[in-house]
Design a protein around this nucleic acid. Structure first.
Lengths: 218, 218
DNA sequence: ATTACTAGTAGACGAGTAA
DNA sequence: TTTACTCGTCTACTAGTAA
């Protein structure tokens, strides 16, 4: 995102335009951005053009709200700052062990993925994944992890079915090497799937509800 | 901080210039900032002029490092993002009860402060403070709290001694109203002092080392 | 009040180039 | 190779003003 847009978008977000429409005149925005009313008006038109905001131009006062694109791009910047100020070489994600629907296990058993795990991660995973429901306050960390380049496990086709790319992030649970696997095209989730050469649930005597820390390498 | 400086400073920080000198040519910085070598060179001179960075201009390659001012100003931006993405109406700070040096108690007993606590916070504090050592991962939250306008308790002079301004932040511990008090001119600390109308230590049966959550109003 | 056009200007930018 | 100067261009700004 162009820096001139970032600054204006940030101010709008601070004024609450992320949650709902806020009434703000171009003069007021100009003041907040330390520029003239005319320039602020122009900036608003540019932000509209770039689809960072939507506007409800009423008779007296315009009302402005960030679009999802605006929020997403602002969040990317936020994640850059997190990388600067929070990260060292790893990030610990806290969560609880939950039972998955067994889907992950089916996928990682596919030979197309399996061979890549060995070469790219250094281990062949146990046939099943450990599902961890991430603590609400740590869900944001997942964005940071996603913004870091993970290891791409290429998709493939088999028996007329196509399997998409999967991104793997090397991690450790109680010093055992493992990896978080996330489908390339995945929506927002608060549950992560872990693969490991061992049966983590048995090796670590884990049960549903147990609290656990996952240390992700960055 | 001017937005054009913020962008360049952020890139330098991402490249590690916050911890130590990094070798980066103006051409390389220009690439990162999507501008020409000439403009990047000019930007570096501006950043030097504004004291955001220091430079070690070697024969072949210049080495750049952020100054404390650069780091501080960048952190202010980071805190803006935290306010956008993390805050609701409160922030919970985790820590452990520790024994203070009794200093806080001496200060809040001063009548000059005491009367203001009643009018500005709605309670007269118990004669003593509860000291909490903030968990390392929550120390950053203190910056966010500090960046929010708290309630200023004005300083005064008494018996030829001058007492400086104190900033109070309304908070709750296990649903009991209290406040975090921070001297206006204070350096970085990982311990916070809490005032409350009750003797928190006794009321909540707290002992040194007990883990406790402080919910700060924002 | 507003928003946003046009016009004029200041400043940011990159090309060329010196050191 | 560097850094960073000068200089021409062009963008981004503000003032004036219309709607």
């Amino acid at each position: 995102m162009d820096e001139k847009y970032s600054f204006a978008l940030r101010k709008l977000a601070l004024l609450g335009a992320m949650d709902d429409y806020i009434a703000i005149s171009s003069r007021e925005l100009g003041e907040a951005l330390e520029m003239s009313q005319q320039s602020a008006s122009k900036r608003i038109l540019e932000l509209l053009d770039e689809k960072y905001i939507v506007r409800d131009l009423g008779a007296r006062r315009q009302r402005i709200k960030l679009t999802q694109k605006g929020i997403d791009d602002l969040k990317k910047e936020y994640n850059e700052y997190r990388r600067i100020f929070e990260l060292t070489d790893h990030m610990t994600i806290h969560g609880n062990v939950v039972s998955g629907m067994g889907e992950g296990g089916y996928y990682i058993c596919q030979d197309g993925y399996k061979s890549q795990f060995q070469s790219k991660l250094g281990f062949t995973p146990f046939e099943g994944t450990l599902n961890i429901q991430v603590d609400p306050e740590d869900v944001g960390k997942l964005d940071v992890v996603r913004s870091i380049a993970g290891i791409t496990i290429n998709g493939f086709s088999s028996d007329g079915r196509s399997f998409g790319d999967v991104i793997a992030y090397k991690a450790k649970i109680r010093n055992i090497d493992c990896a978080i696997v996330v489908p390339e095209r995945s929506h927002y989730v608060d549950t992560i799937e872990i693969i490991c050469q061992y049966h983590l649930r048995r090796t670590l005597s884990l049960e549903d509800g147990d609290h656990i820390d996952v240390k992700v390498n960055l």
